[in-house]
Simulated scan of single mutants.
Amino acid sequence: MLEYLTRLNDHNLPYPDTIHPIVVHFVIAMVLFAFCCDVIGYFTRNSRLFEVSWWNMCLATVAIFVAIIFGQFEAGLAKPYHLAKSVLNMHTLIGWSLSGIIAAITAWRYVIRTRNPQKLPIGYLGVGLLLVTIVGMQVYLGDQLVWVYGLHTVPVVEAVKDGILR
């Protein structure tokens, strides 16, 4: 039984496909949707959208840690070659930073929510815009790792195993 758990497939993974992108897409969607709800709620004075945003940020805070766990595991199995290492390192650094940033923003949001759930300070929207920008940069780096450098794609895994890519 243990041999089935430790065997790696054509993608250099012990399971059929990467899990990190699946989980991280939830984080991306929740952060972007939370920001949209905040902006629309702020300008329409619809405080129910603040509640939607709050719960999206709560779930994003939990989900980003799950995404990081799988991301670290899958990055370790990827055996990145020289050209991909700097992008992977930057992606990892920003990912860990985002976990702290999202947790801090969610904590700040909790304080705002307990004081007055009907209003949102404009400064919070500014920080939300900064968060959306950082998430966008992170998405760009993740896209590069898959679509430019081909981590966990069969041809790249084979090239690394054959010693063609170093």
Rank of each mutant, 00 (worst) to 15 (best):
W55Y: 15
W54K: 15
R7Q: 15
A34P: 07
S47Q: 07
V39T: 09
H152K: 07
D10L: 05
I122H: 03
V66G: 01
G76R: 09
Y110K: 09
E51L: 13
V156E: 03
T6E: 10
P121D: 00
K119Q: 13
L130T: 15
R48E: 15
L151K: 02
G123M: 12
V66Q: 05
F35S: 07
L13Y: 05
H152Y: 08
L8C: 14
P14F: 08
K119G: 08
V31N: 02
M90N: 03
H152Q: 06
C36G: 11
Y81F: 13
V132M: 13
C37I: 03
I112C: 07
M90Y: 02
V148Q: 14
G41R: 04
N56V: 05
L145V: 06
Y81K: 00
T106I: 09
N9L: 12
C58K: 14
L32T: 02
Y140T: 02
F43K: 13
N9G: 13
Y140S: 05
T133S: 12
D10I: 04
V27C: 06
F65M: 11
I19V: 13
L165K: 08
E51C: 09
A75K: 01
L88A: 03
N9S: 08
M137L: 14
L93H: 04
T6W: 07
D162V: 01
V24D: 04
N116V: 08
N9K: 10
Q118W: 09
L145N: 01
I164P: 01
G123A: 13
R113V: 09
V148H: 13
P80W: 03
G126R: 11
E158R: 09
